[in-house]
Nucleic acid binder design. Structure first.
Lengths: 342, 342
DNA sequence: CTGAAAGCGCTTACAG
DNA sequence: CTGAAAGCGCTTACAG
């Protein structure tokens, strides 16, 4: 790579000091009452030499990198990819760039990624923190590193966070299924202690109880995070084979990644949606609109989540809020009724 | 944010020089024949003080950031998201982090993003370059910045690039449709001069001619990059309404984003796949496997593309290859036969 | 075997 | 109105 032109070079070129050049190129020429023609001269030279300030040097000096670190479970997952895009857009508005890492819900990897990004001196983090990373998040607190949690949080650790009303959303979705006349409603979820997932299942259970149907533990199925097609297939078959004697007539999926695989399984098994089984899922990837039938979904407000997370983070970075007061944001989801529930 | 411990601090703490600490923490203690017990002592202190080297300072000194810049059209697009994940994984193996930007195929935005990343001193780029960015890519050449193009390239600009055999893939897909007995085969593509897209349409045309059906320009439909649902709907309706007199019995989509919307339109219009219209599309998002019928697809080798791009880029960065010899890689796609062609 | 010093490219008090 | 100097936190010749 060729060397880039530096402040020193353009100063030498013009016969003025680096100080002066730095001041005018930072737009503070007026403030320092540099002569108008000198300002012009410097700006012209910078343009001609295609001067690009070296951010490493700036950061080292100022302590700010204008970079934020985004760690999510998997950037290939449409939920996180779309959220990532919203975060990128909002960050760009304020001149921030974003580095990303996929932690695969692995707390060891997550910890390493935080450390790498800290060495890179990111100004703050947006984190989708996996189970097992509690200690790491606590460490961020003690070090007073600006961060905001997204999609999930730890009730025991004071944090800025942005989540959706998982309990309510699941509650209402289940209620909707019941009102559609469904009685044997299953919940397929991840075998994780993530509060978000637990809340969804709790909302589902509460709804069944409140509406007089009663929760049946055998209808709650957990699959592992790195679920295989086979694992999901077994779960779906199990639920629907039972159904010969005791029909499962609806499934609430707690994650669209599982739902997408589940729908494939239903197809393979020749089970009809919504005639045999009604379906509702969390998340709203595009795929849900092209199945037949289209799938009713609980959509998260990704744009709002992206914007809010950046705004809260930048407030922290710029220290407008103290480190004591935490922003705890719970957003509403949108229930998109399509054709999978009759 | 609290201040982190620096080399100086741990040197002072131990009563040795920064030089020494730097050497042992870079694992070069032996090389400099530092006494074993001193090495131990330094390492212990670093651990206890949770020392994290400041990358800004390292980079400023060494001129390397161990960061690469990834600019693609849109990280929310599953094709790029999955590719991004592969790139992230491969980069991590070599200790590189990745910054990403979505250019939306906008050359102005693309240029700005390159400049921002250059200021951040990324060691190199992986770029999905939009039409109109030729000059920018040329500038990278003259500045001898390491980069590799991905998904598309400019025939007139010598570059490292990784693409797939778009012409062949479209040729064979079209041939497949013809062999399935289809005669009126449409191609829905993007209205862009991107070589990748042109090649796909050219392969489609050549196939029709070679197999004696002949290409019919009126069956090639272009939609804008920022296509609306309405625009695609009109295109699909147009193709299928014509079909009453002169039936379109197959569609080759040049991009899965369009295909996904197109499939929704076919559904709305009550057109049966594959009875009325057979479908093949480029790209292979998960969604294609959950429609009924499942959609036959031309899958790109994303993992290989990710790995190769990093490997070529790192070779450039480490100067193993001169800047003169370019790596021009064309990978094969995989034709995944599913149920959308009868 | 270890340390003092220079320098990467900036910004920012401080001085005049 | 402008400049000389210090310093951000490292690494790396150089010296002994």
């Amino acid at each position: 790579m060729k060397k880039k032109t530096s402040l020193k070079e353009i100063a030498a070129h013009l016969g003025v000091s680096k100080t002066l050049v730095s001041m005018v190129l930072n737009g503070r020429g007026k403030e320092y009452r540099i002569k108008e023609d000198v300002i012009k001269k410097v700006e012209k030279a910078a343009r001609e030499l295609n001067y690009q300030p070296n951010k490493m040097a700036q950061s080292l000096r100022t302590g700010k990198t204008k970079t934020i670190g985004l760690i999510i479970a998997d950037i290939a997952n449409p939920f996180f990819a779309t959220l990532g895009r919203e975060i990128e857009n909002e960050a760009a508005k304020y001149g921030y760039s974003v580095m990303f890492c996929s932690s695969d819900e692995n707390p060891k990897k997550f910890k390493q990624q935080i450390e790498i990004m800290q060495r890179s001196m990111v100004d703050g983090f947006i984190l989708s923190a996996p189970i097992g990373s509690e200690e790491q998040i606590g460490a961020l607190n003690s070090a007073q590193v600006p961060y905001v949690l997204i999609d999930r949080y730890f009730p025991n650790i004071p944090s800025n966070y942005i989540v959706v009303d998982n309990f309510e959303s699941a509650y209402n979705a289940t209620k909707y299924l019941i009102q559609k006349g469904r009685k044997r409603i299953a919940n397929v979820t991840l075998n994780t202690k993530l509060k978000a997932m637990k809340d969804r299942t709790d909302g589902y259970k509460k709804s069944l109880v409140d509406l007089g149907i009663g929760a049946d533990g055998s209808l709650i199925k957990e699959v592992s995070f790195s679920h295989s097609n086979q694992e999901i297939f077994n779960v779906i078959r199990n639920l629907t084979e039972n159904s010969k004697t005791d029909p499962v007539d609806a499934i609430l999926f707690s994650s669209s990644k599982i739902a997408l695989m589940g729908i494939q399984c239903l197809l393979k098994l020749g089970i009809k949606v919504p005639e045999d089984v009604a379906i509702v899922t969390f998340d709203n990837p595009e795929a849900l609109q092209i199945c037949s039938p289209t799938i009713t979904a609980i959509a998260q407000p990704l744009e709002e989540m992206g914007k809010k997370s950046i705004n809260i983070l930048l407030n922290q970075i710029n220290n407008k809020e103290g480190y004591e007061s935490k922003c705890e944001v719970e957003l509403k989801t949108e229930f998109l009724i399509r054709n999978s529930c009759g």
